[in-house]
Nucleic acid binder design. Structure first.
Lengths: 217, 217, 217, 217
DNA sequence: AATGAATGAGTCTTCATTCAT
DNA sequence: TATGAATGAAGACTCATTCAT
């Protein structure tokens, strides 16, 4: 950096630099934490992969733990963005549901590191309160609750307790996504989304089966 | 002591003692690994909790890792037993489904350590191939596939690809169970099972909604 | 053991048994210590190889260390016996020298464990005073000093300081034997003995070379 | 500091420091391994003796084993240097022989730790192939083979198989050196060298004895 | 007498973080 | 400001010996 550059008033350049650096670090951290796991990744490796000294990293993050959480948050907002992008401009509410589910599955299929990060938190940072994934879900859930209410208003959906149903669907997708990852399934997200929707929306029983179910409970 | 037993000099090998010790160790290990995590639990703690010397543990298990896997297997067979017990003597196939789901959720609600063990494996022993939970599922899946075929034969269930549907339901329950645990939900398993079944079996849409769905895809 | 057997007065049977047991233990110990080294051989292995319990060994030897030393002494007396046997009835004093050297080299070639034992002592039991090998040599050296005196008396050997010369020859053979072992040389002991004797007895220089040597010192 | 040096930000890597540290560690390691043995010396002791933290040692050597081998190599090259220095500028080939032998004996007398290191390798790192001492000897042997050829050409030495003879002399000196160390002999190396040479070069027998020897074999 | 279950001290190595340069 | 040298706590596993059975 030259003297003239540092003479500018304020330090907009520095702030931008700082932000860029942080992002660079996070990108590498996501890759390494995802590939090797949190504890198997040491700061020396991170520094080496970044081509900087270990100390430098500590100028941008207070601790390894903080890097991890920043990485996790980064990944969660990426997820959010991709889902939002996938439903932008989609009018039909049923299509929208399918798009969102496909986007969700697609994101984790193309970002396996994200799944790893999410799992790492669960075991390395339990007792830290609600895991980031579920925090995120809690924050975005209202959108889906509204979505369900809308579907019910239009008569497309049976009257069901919306919150509860959103949770069931969210949990189910979470399980499907994890299972995809852990079984190394590579099913095309769009197809899988459709299969899932078919079950959730249409149910498995025939009219006769449903009638019987009512007698059982 | 019989004559045949006294034919061999010295203190006889006590097989029952060995089995009992292993079980004792496993029980404490499940608790500690579950409470504190695998890596946060050191062998010294385990020994202390058992009231034995560190070396004693190594007379019964080759390594900490082996204790962990034995604990995991122990938990998985407990799960299996409880589910089997829950459906024993249940004739109605729809009731049976509900019972099994409730038993599954109940098991993990009353054995939170089991969930932890399962998660621990995912991060501490990745690269060891298919996680124990999914191995177990692969071995027991055929039962549910048959179950679905039966339901379809009797006309209670729509014709759906059985394997695929079993996977979707299994993954979903896995997700619900994890979410219960991670959100510290304490919903009564029977109620939750019924809610889930209601969605899976009856679907969320009205007849009109389903008709529309068919136009969308 | 029956009651009538134990009625015999004294316990000659027990003493013989005890001695036999000790020898059996020593033989296995020599093999294991030789193959794997002292510290790499644990008492459990020893017991297993003997087909007895660990505790039994401690009825015959106070400690692992004591087993080792007994094994070492056992080996040293075997060496002594074989050398003595090799020169029994040999009249010619020069032939006798060759026989003894060949026997020495042959013993260690066919008992590589003996070399290992000897080396093990040097590193595991330093500070215990003179190593067993050199203790043994100190006890048998006088024979060779006498032998040299005899050779000098008969005029076959130049007048040299006998003790000193015996030490040089003993040390040299020790070095040759160790080098054989450590280089895994398999030279026939008889041939090697002859080569060594040729050097020691006849020297390397010509008459002219010796004359020159005298001018140098 | 030059411009080019300052082009790279941060604290520059100090190669000289690194080399100095390694040497310091080696010197202390040689002393401790020599005094107490390899396995009796733990890294904590080594660190304490150096006045550094345990982790620091591992910045300079990958493992305790690597420290040991570096120490061993260090010692072997010191030996080589001292022997070479002792014969530098010595023209007379017989004197040269004496100087080299004296230097060899002197080195190990004044560096008893070197002997210990050498012995430690034999028992702690058997199976690692040829011991360092013999590797070193194999690399330097050709010099002495040439030396013998020269002596034979000039007529000072009888025609003998050079390689074989060098091995016998080398092994013998190895034995003498070890024996000196293990018996804690403090004989002046120059005197001992002369005594040894006297035997090797002039032989022990009289002319009459040699004639008789020829009849025996 | 014989056995083997139990013990617990002992040791190498890793790694997040600090701070002198 | 950037660097990397230094730190030291932490942790799995072994094994000679003892002693209850």
């Amino acid at each position: 950096m030259t003297f003239s550059a540092s003479r500018k008033r304020g330090r907009p350049v520095d702030l931008a630099l700082h932000a860029r650096r942080r992002r660079e670090i996070l990108e590498v951290a996501i890759r390494l934490f995802g590939q090797q796991g949190y504890s198997a990744t040491d700061t020396q490796q991170l520094a080496q992969a970044l081509g900087v000294g270990k100390g430098t990293i500590y100028r941008y993050f207070r601790s390894k733990r903080e890097i991890f959480y920043a990485a996790l948050r980064h990944v969660m907002s990426q997820l959010d963005e991709e889902i939002q992008a996938s439903i932008r401009g989609v009018d039909d509410p049923l299509r929208l549901s399918g798009q969102a589910i496909a986007a969700y599955l697609r994101f984790f299929q193309s970002h396996p590191h994200a799944v790893q990060l999410l799992l790492q938190e669960l075991v390395h940072f339990r007792h830290e309160g609600l895991p980031a994934y579920f925090q995120h879900r809690r924050q975005t859930m209202h959108r889906w609750v509204n979505h369900l209410h809308h579907l019910m208003t239009t008569g497309a959906m049976r009257p069901v307790p919306a919150e509860n149903t959103v949770e069931i669907m969210g949990d189910s997708l979470f399980g499907i996504m994890l299972s995809n990852f852990l079984n190394q399934r590579q099913r095309p997200p769009e197809i899988q989304a459709r299969e899932v929707l078919e079950v959730f929306f249409c149910g498995l029983l025939t009219e006769q089966g449903r009638a019987h179910l009512r007698t059982v409970y």
